[in-house]
C-alpha cells in the first residue's frame, strides 16, 4: 500500500510516496450531541519520514509542509487544496480531497541516531466548507 499526498494552491507540491507512512481520516461531532449537528469537523493526520537527500535532491517537499504551517491567517495561502490517495496493488482505494484545508498542528522530530526525521501534520477542512470534501475510491489507477 502506498500513500500519496498532494498539496495545491500557493506553492503546489507533492509529498513523495517514500515519505508518507500513515494517514488518519477523522470526522467528529461533539460527543454530547443528541442529533446530527452542523458542528462537524473533518481532520486528516499525516505522519511520515523526512528523508535526507544525500546527493543533493533539489526539492525537499516536507519542508514545504513546515512552511505552510507558519503561514499567517490573514494570508490567502493559509488555505490550500489537499488530496490524499491510498493506492494498493494498482487500485486507488481512497482519495480524500479537502479543498479548503488549513494546518492545525505540525511537528518535526529528529534524533542523532536515526538519519531521518519524522513529521506529523494535522490539517482540517474549514468548518463551514464541510460539504466540499470528496471521498472517492475503488477505481483502477496508479
Amino acid at each position: 500500500m502506498s500513500l500519496r499526498v498532494t498539496v495545491n494552491g500557493a506553492n503546489s507540491f507533492e509529498v513523495a510516496k517514500d515519505c508518507v507512512q500513515k494517514i488518519k481520516f477523522r470526522t467528529d461531532i461533539p460527543l454530547d450531541s443528541n442529533a446530527r449537528t452542523k458542528d462537524v469537523g473533518s481532520t486528516l493526520e499525516i505522519t511520515g519520514k523526512i528523508l535526507v537527500a544525500t546527493d543533493g535532491d533539489p526539492f525537499d517537499s516536507t519542508r514545504q509542509l513546515a512552511l505552510w504551517s507558519v503561514v499567517p491567517a490573514e494570508d490567502a495561502a493559509a488555505y490550500r487544496q489537499v488530496e490524499v490517495e491510498i493506492i494498493n496493488a494498482g487500485v486507488v482505494e481512497r482519495k480524500y480531497s479537502f479543498p479548503r484545508a488549513f494546518v492545525v498542528d505540525y511537528k518535526e522530530d529528529f534524533s542523532n541516531s536515526d538519519g531521518i526525521g519524522q513529521f506529523t501534520i494535522i490539517i482540517k477542512q474549514k468548518k463551514d466548507k464541510l460539504d466540499t470534501i470528496a471521498i472517492e475510491g475503488g477505481y483502477i489507477g496508479a
Binding site: 500500500m1 502506498s2 500513500l3 508518507v20 507512512q21 500513515k22 494517514i23 488518519k24 481520516f25 477523522r26 470526522t27 467528529d28 461531532i29 460527543l31 450531541s33 442529533a35 446530527r36 491510498i86 494498493n88 481512497r94
Partner: peptide, 15 residues
Amino acid sequence: AFVMEYEESLDDETG
C-alpha cells in the same frame, strides 16, 4: 442513527 465519530487509519505496511 447519526455519526458521532468516524476514523480511518491507513499505513504503508499492513496492506
